[in-house]
Amino acid sequence: MSLYFREVGSGQPVIILHGLFGSSDNWLTIARQLATDYRLVLPDQRNHGRSFKSETFDYQSMSRDLLDFIEENSIDHPVIIGHSMGGKVAMNFAVNYPSMLSKLVVVDIGPKAYPVHHQQILSGLNHLDLTRIKSRKEADDLLSDYVEEAGVRQFLLKNLDRDEDGAFTWKLNLPVITREIENVGEALSVEKTFSKPALFVKGERSEYIVDDDSQRITQIFPDNRIVSVSRAGHWVHAENPSEFLSVIKAFLME
């Protein structure tokens, strides 16, 4: 099945892959800032946004989705940018299909395994009874019992949609994501390398990439560079977009 996607700009193709609980919509602001010089293609990954729902949710499947997407849309040697879960998809894709892309950008995630740490969010989302909720404000109030940060709640509740009868429904495949959440944290398991340029962008305030990770990153991505964006946590592109864009533009122009 085909992935839903958004597209802006023209020129060298750049694919941006969103993270867990996200969608292509989260990256439109960044994409529009690059669209004067590049063709930005933003797919919704399986079980997210407007793309198809599947009982299978793992990096092998999502990497294959990306391969099919590139071939179906005749995208020639794109730069691939992936954030968080999208970065894991991008890394898996790069080592398995290195001839299909020109450069790799991984945003605030490494190839190592991460412990599952989304239980509170998943508990909150699963406790929202969409048959009873009448407004987004009500959903936000209920979710605040589980997720303290207003900005995170706003991000999560972008996944709410209305069906043809006006009732709330989830865009994302919440039952499958909940069931398969351990797959999201798994390490890059294949013993392959990607020798083309790879940029790792981390948030200064984030602990997803630490100094000790550089050795493993270099083993898999020998032509790598790790850049820290100041005053930013895990959502680097949203917390310091100007510096993030400066780093990305410099890498794209090389």
Rank of each mutant, 00 (worst) to 15 (best):
M1P: 12
S2W: 08
L3S: 02
L3G: 00
V8D: 04
V14P: 00
I16H: 02
H18C: 00
G22K: 00
D25Y: 11
W27P: 06
W27V: 01
W27I: 02
T29F: 13
Q33K: 14
A35Y: 04
D37H: 13
L40S: 05
L40D: 03
L40Y: 06
V41P: 07
D44Q: 04
R46T: 00
R46F: 03
H48E: 03
R50Y: 10
S51D: 00
S51Q: 03
F52L: 08
F52S: 07
Y59F: 04
Q60R: 13
L66Q: 04
L67T: 09
L67V: 09
F69N: 02
E72N: 09
N73W: 04
N73F: 01
I75P: 01
I75R: 03
D76I: 13
D76S: 14
H77Q: 12
P78T: 00
P78F: 01
P78E: 05
H83F: 02
G86V: 01
G87T: 00
A90T: 00
M91V: 01
N92C: 03
V95D: 01
N96P: 10
K103V: 03
V107R: 01
P111E: 05
P111Y: 06
K112A: 08
K112Y: 11
Y114L: 06
I121A: 06
I121Q: 05
L122P: 05
S123R: 12
G124I: 01
L130D: 03
R132L: 07
K134M: 11
K137C: 15
K137E: 15
E138R: 11
D140S: 12
D141A: 14
L142K: 12
L142Y: 10
S144Y: 07
S144E: 06
S144C: 09
D145Y: 14
E149P: 14
G151Y: 10
G151M: 11
R153V: 00
L157F: 03
D161F: 10
R162F: 11
D163V: 01
D163N: 10
D163T: 01
D163W: 08
E164G: 12
D165V: 09
A167G: 13
F168A: 06
F168L: 05
T169W: 10
K171L: 06
L172I: 07
L172H: 10
N173P: 05
N173Q: 04
P175A: 09
I177D: 06
T178G: 13
T178H: 14
R179D: 13
E180M: 14
E182R: 15
E182V: 15
N183L: 13
E186S: 15
F194S: 13
K196Y: 15
P197Q: 12
A198D: 10
F200E: 00
V201L: 11
G203L: 09
E204P: 14
R205K: 15
R205I: 13
S206R: 07
E207L: 11
E207A: 12
V210M: 08
D213N: 11
S214D: 14
Q215A: 15
R216N: 12
Q219T: 14
I220T: 07
I220Y: 07
F221A: 12
I226Y: 06
I226H: 06
V227F: 07
S228W: 03
S230T: 08
R231A: 13
V236R: 00
V236T: 00
H237M: 08
A238K: 09
E239C: 05
N240L: 08
S242V: 13
S242L: 15
F244H: 07
L245A: 04
S246N: 11
K249Q: 07
A250R: 10
A250V: 06
